[in-house]
Design a protein around this nucleic acid. Structure first.
Lengths: 110, 110
DNA sequence: GTCAATTTCTACAAATACGAAATAAATATT
DNA sequence: AATATTTATTTCGTATTTGTAGAAATTGAC
């Protein structure tokens, strides 16, 4: 793989960051994935993926302490870059084209 | 990953098998991916993924020599099982739901 | 200093990737 | 019938990237 390729979980995380928009940080992302994708992943997994996505240029980030309820470290907030948006749209388009090409019969009883 | 989870390439291959329907075998799949996804993968990679998908129960296979143009070994033909169809549809649905949730502003300049 | 929220570190498992060599089955050529 | 040619799969060895979680460290509010 070239390094511009999105892995399955990377894509899910990137999409979730976009969906959470201005509150996209580790724990919120983990929870959103658990809820939306009915899938449990650990917080360290989320952070590892976040780091990789930023290294690849698909996300940018900043720290923001905004309104901590009661103690706690600053949040590391993420957002999707133009490159990330492009990668996301490309993946979607390719899959959509393939879906359109699938004949109904391809799916009648396995 | 649990083992029921589809990797990014696995999903692409599974989709391609469905799209090719009754002519889904190694080389045809490789070519289709090259054309549709503008992505070059080697034939050994394709066969490795095919094997993994079958082991996971997402595809079934048979051998068929049907109408070889000019000599050549039997093709190993694949098709998507009900479990494979389900996995494919599940991935699509989750992503679609996330896409629907993304606010337009999430994508204005990276 | 204590406590809670969050990130970072470390390590390992699974998936992706390729090139080359070995095999196999079918047809064509002699 | 024996041999060559064609098309395709299978096996093998190895390397890199992606996916995963547990434990440790950091930060900030009190």
């Amino acid at each position: 793989m070239k390094g511009t390729q999105l892995g399955e979980l990377e894509e899910l995380v990137l999409l979730t960051v976009a969906a959470l928009y201005d509150d996209a940080y580790g724990i919120a992302i983990m929870n959103e994935i658990k809820e939306r994708a009915r899938r449990s992943i650990s917080i360290s997994t989320v952070h590892a993926v976040l780091k990789r996505l930023e290294d690849k240029g698909f996300m940018s980030s900043r720290y923001d302490g905004a309104t901590p309820e009661r103690g706690g470290r600053r949040k590391h907030l993420f957002r999707v870059t133009a490159a990330g948006e492009k990668a996301l749209k490309n993946s979607r388009e390719i899959r959509n084209e393939l879906w359109d090409q699938i004949p109904k019969v391809a799916f009648e009883n396995g």
